[in-house]
Amino acid sequence: MLTPEEWTAVTLSLRVAFWATFWSLPFAVLTAFVLARARFPGKSLLDGLVYLPLVLPKVVVGYLLLLTLGGRGLIGQYLDAWFGIKLIFTTAGATVAAAVVSFPLTVNAIRLALEAVDRGLETAARTLGASRLDVFFSVTLPLMLPGILSGALLAIASALGEFGATITFVSNVEGQTRTIPLAIYSATHMPDGDAMALRLTLVSVVLALGSLLLASLVDRRIRVMIGRG
């Protein structure tokens, strides 16, 4: 069905999407919490920064990543010199690009879930002897779970579709950074790449549809589980 080259693109895409979501999720929960609950000067600036990748051209996001995390970038040079971490042309770099681009969507989904949590329940938990941190883990987080999971699936879906930032930041290297969208892009530039582009397009549709179905299924299950059904 799929050629080895196409399989590589598909598994790479899945790996990149999974790890991008995995690593960004804790930060997304923290950011959502800060944006939903905390009050501090410069909050609107942070708010703007978080949502910036959503509205900026993805190529701009990729170029900014290159400037900061590239081999001679502001942070990138030290990542290489101190830790030996290279992001350019690597799967790690593609993962960072996917994480940054999907971050606003994840934060938004989690923030909505957090705002729906009844703060009265948190007060009740504190009168029962739970500290703020305890309340977060024993009450707030479980009640946010549907939102976190739908945020995560949204993040995976959008990471699967990431193109602009990836190709600008880490280029189009087979087996390293050539995810499904990049592979389709390459195929359309090859003289006989039409069949490959079509097959990968089908895979994209199946993956996107699958994650949406999974999201609604998981959401329903969890809502029943936490008594919100």
Partner: peptide, 15 residues
């Protein structure tokens, strides 16, 4: 403070 608080709307944890 260790005071028990019974709210008008019970506020049981749904999960």
């Amino acid at each position: 403070r260790r005071v028990g608080y019974v709210f008008q709307d019970s506020r049981l944890f749904p999960h």
